[in-house]
Each structure stands twice: as structure tokens, then as C-alpha cells.
Nucleic acid binder design. Structure first.
Lengths: 208, 208
DNA sequence: TAGATTGTTAATCGATTAACAATC
DNA sequence: TAGATTGTTAATCGATTAACAATC
């Protein structure tokens, strides 16, 4: 069924899910047009995307909010909570560890690691920063599934290697370097300065 | 000349630039294949992208690092420093304000704002958190060009409206909501939980 | 010259949009 | 029934890839 969903669709599904979560207490039904409006896309796009997950709207009526929510959750593999570790307990790592949005959306930060002895033992929310060497042992015990890299650029590759060695197959990398991983591991990069540079292009276009 | 560069190309240019900055002290010349390897794309893609900016490599040799760096900088409008403001002085806003990568890449955080009186006056790095009401006046004085929204979701739209009112035309939004802006304003959204949900899809795919 | 590498073309692929018959 | 909205098709658009002549 959901053998495989096109990349572009997968990128939009979380936004649809977000909107459905906000709608769930308000409506029992939503139209493709409602979803489109809330997520900044088109109704045709929404219907096309949803049809990839199988048909189940009702013509003349729309989509059942709860049913659609469940369907997208399942498609994204969000039925059970996924344990996440943060590597790097600097400003960014600390901010990530404190961020409530992860928990609300089914991800649990189970540990924060750092290599710097001065940071080890530091409390962040309910967690205590652990030495990065403990990662591999911990990973098995915690059933760790996702690693978030919040280290400086020059540490990112070696941290990545540790994560891979610990059996993690999904990595979110905030360091501004492309890290190498084996084919079975997925890395997404969030580069804050890159986003600003793209915005800069738009400012420059406007000025001409 | 660079009348307009395809979206997909614009998204890759910052990565090329990053690599060139690392190369500048090592080589005088790089091949499309070197850039491709470092940025996770293909040599054909790199050449195609660069040809959008005009021709200037040397067959059999490659691209002059300095010349290419200048060309991409210019194309992205990165010749002069762009002043940035952060709205929201919570964990994320504080982390962003402390992040060195912005300064290194030509963006200067000129102010941090918050609505909460308990946060106003707080020192972050060399800055002091200011009341969000001061935004509009400050914006003109500082020549503010970019706003980064690091508030909770429910404050994002009103903060956006303030930024727009202050004449800002480029916004990076970290709040997990789609904000509405007039056509002359560009918004990019960085939704951390969305990234995790996309990773979750890949984990789910793997498990089948 | 021989080897390397660009710039560009044509082919392919994937994503988006428009339109509308089906149907609740 | 009339009105609303889906699911799907076909057309369009944009991005990527492969291949190779041009040329340093």
C-alpha cells in the first residue's frame, strides 16, 4: 500500500498532521482546501498527496479528521514514541533539550552527551549531561533511534561515526558540514546560516 | 545575467560557498567533482548550477576558488553584512543569539526582543534583551533586514505582523505555524519537529 | 600532444497544476 | 435534487542526469 511515498509528499505530511492536531477538537471533518490554506499549498496538491496513502475521503464532505490523523501518523511511523539523543550540550544542544515541541510530537529526548568534562554532569531539564563515550552502551539500553548533532563543525564527523557505530540509523545534523554515513543511515541537515543565505538571495533580488 | 536563478540552485549555492571558504587557503582551483563530493551532489549538477551564474571555469583545470567564491557571494547578495534581529529570548532565541556561525557568515545579530518583562534587560553575549515594542523604531535605526522568530507558536503571527510593519522583508520562522505575510515578504520556516517526523518515515520504511 | 575537465544539449525523471467526472 | 468535494487523469513545468564535443 504505502510501498513508498514520494519525497515531496513526505515533506508535506508533517504539516498536514500538525493542522489535523489543531483541528481535532474543533471539527470532525476537513476539506482538502482547509488543509491547503493552513499549510500553504494547494487543494489539488493535498488531494494528490493523500491519495498516495490510499483513498478514504468522502466526496462532497471531506476527510474525517481522526481517521486522517491516524493514517498519516501510521504512514510516518509515528505510532510509538521514538527515543532521541542530543550530542553536544552547548547553547544549541541545551535549547534543543529544553524544547517542548519534541515531546508534544512523539519524540523523547532520553540523553544529552558532551565530550567536554566541564559540561558533563550539568543538569538540563530532567537530564544530566553524560560523557560521549557512554553513547554506545546507552544506545542499546535506551533503544535509541535518532541522534541530533549539536556540536561544532569539526566534531560532527567523529560524532556521526559514533552514532553509526551505536546502531543509530537516523541523524539530524545541525553542524554546518556534510557528514559521511553508510547507505543504511539517513542524515538530514539543518544549517541555520544556509537558511539566512537563501533569504539573502531574496533580499538581493528585490533590490534590483 | 543572474536575472533569476532556479530555486533548487539557490538552495545549493550556500553549500558550495561553504566548501569554497574551507578550500580557499588550500587550493587555488577546484573541479566540479570536488565540490560535488564535498556537498553531496553530482558533478553535472554543480556545473549546471554554476553555469546559471555565467561561464567562468577553465576546461581541463576547474574553477578558480577566489573568483568562484566572489561570484557566488555576489549572486546571493552577501557582499555586505546583513543586520538580523531575533524575536523571542527563550532557550532557542538565546541559542541563536550565541551562535557564532552567523557572524562568520556575514550576518550580524543586532538585537534580541521579548514581550516578557522578566526577560527584558537580560544580557545575551554582548546584547541586552529589548522590549518587542521597540522593534519598529529600532528597525529603522539599525537598517534591519532579517527577522528570526523564536517565539512560541501562538505569538508567531503577531510578531510577524510587527516585523512586516517595521519594513522587514525576510523572515526565518522557527515557530511551528505557517504565518501569513504580504507578497513582498519572504518567509522560510525551520520546523525542528517536522525534520524529526521525516526521519521517522525513513526509520519506518527501513523496518518493513 | 594527451589528459582533464568544462559547458551545454538532449533525454529522463519527478512534481505540480488544472480540470472534471464521479459521487456523497 | 443541488451543492460540495473527492480522486484521478492529462498537461505542464521544473529539476536531474548522461553524454560528449569543445578546449585548456
Amino acid at each position: 500500500m504505502s510501498g513508498s511515498i514520494p519525497r515531496a509528499t513526505v515533506r508535506r505530511l508533517p504539516a498536514y498532521l500538525q493542522f489535523l492536531e489543531e483541528s481535532i477538537s474543533i471539527h470532525t471533518t476537513v476539506a482538502s482546501d482547509d488543509i491547503a490554506l493552513a499549510t500553504g499549498t494547494s487543494a489539488a496538491q493535498v488531494r494528490k498527496d493523500l491519495s498516495q496513502l490510499g483513498s478514504f475521503g468522502t466526496r462532497g464532505v471531506g476527510y474525517d479528521v481522526v481517521a486522517l490523523h491516524n493514517l498519516i501518523s501510521r504512514a510516518l511511523g509515528l505510532e510509538s514514541e521514538r527515543p532521541v539523543a542530543i550530542i553536544g550540550a552547548g547553547n544549541l544542544g541545551t535549547a534543543l533539550a529544553n524544547y517542548r515541541g519534541f515531546g508534544e510530537r512523539g519524540f523523547r529526548i532520553v540523553a544529552v552527551y558532551d565530550a567536554d568534562p566541564r559540561r558533563i554532569g550539568k543538569r538540563i531539564d530532567t537530564l544530566v549531561v553524560r560523557p560521549v563515550d557512554a553513547l554506545k552502551k546507552d544506545a542499546r539500553r535506551n533503544g535509541l533511534e535518532i541522534g541530533m548533532i549539536a556540536t561544532p563543525a569539526d566534531a560532527a564527523q567523529s560524532v556521526t561515526d559514533m552514532l553509526v557505530d551505536a546502531g543509530i540509523e537516523a541523524i539530524l545534523n545541525f553542524a554546518p558540514v556534510v557528514v559521511k554515513v553508510p547507505a543504511n543511515v539517513t542524515v538530514h541537515q539543518v544549517d541555520l546560516a544556509t537558511e539566512l543565505r537563501i533569504l539573502s538571495y531574496h533580499l538581493a533580488q528585490r533590490a534590483r
